[in-house]
Computed example of a mutant assay.
Amino acid sequence: MAERPPKIPQSVLVVIHTDALEVLLIERTDAPGFWQSVTGSKDWPEEPFEATARREVLEETGIDAASPGCALSDWFLENVYDIYPQWRHRYAPGVTRNTEHLFGLRVPAGTPVRLSPREHTDYVWLPWQEAAARCFSPSNAEAISLLPRLARPEKA
């Protein structure tokens, strides 16, 4: 099996939510009890963040961000954080920090979720306050707490 290239320390965090501000959280396969929004790194340095967000949402949840009723919004916010030590081996030697670009994805209530079993074991829809409290990552919890201010509800 070929060795995978190092991860690029530029990623996205996508808060998937309904108009009622219910948030989708997914549980990591490699870290039981770690609940999060969709996250993922660029596949190549020039990959646009929006393309990364769309790809990661589809890979991790089976949700196509271009489906009717869905709306991907660039929140124009970034987090820079230390990569957890247990995951640093995925990056080039000496890389310890990651830049994460934030997006929101509004989906219709009842949108089906199909997890990638390689990455996630379970999912749950929660009101935004409960979702923020359940996240293991402080930056993910903070992003969810911004949802009432940044969400763009569907126009009637």
Rank of each mutant, 00 (worst) to 15 (best):
L105Q: 00
F76N: 14
Y81D: 07
F76D: 12
G94K: 08
E100K: 09
V80L: 04
G110L: 09
H101Q: 14
D82V: 13
D122Q: 11
V107I: 15
Y91C: 08
R114N: 10
R118W: 02
E78S: 14
P112W: 05
D64C: 07
G69K: 03
C135M: 06
V80A: 07
W75S: 01
G104D: 00
L105C: 01
P108K: 10
D64L: 08
H89Q: 12
L102A: 14
L102R: 09
C70V: 06
A132D: 03
L126D: 00
V113G: 04
D122F: 06
E78Y: 04
R106I: 05
E100Y: 09
D82C: 02
R106Y: 06
S73F: 07
Q129A: 13
T121V: 14
R106S: 03
R114C: 05
V95C: 08
I83T: 08
A92I: 09
F103G: 04
G62C: 05
L102F: 13
P117L: 00
P93Y: 07
P85H: 02
V124Q: 08
S67R: 12
V113Q: 03
S73I: 12
E119F: 12
V95P: 08
N79R: 09
C70H: 09
R114T: 15
H89L: 04
W128Y: 15
L105M: 02
G94D: 06
S116C: 12
R97G: 03
L77G: 08
P112F: 08
L115H: 05
W75L: 12
G104E: 00
T99C: 12
L115E: 02
P85N: 04
I83E: 05
D74K: 05
R106E: 02
Y123H: 15
P85G: 02
S73L: 13
W75M: 06
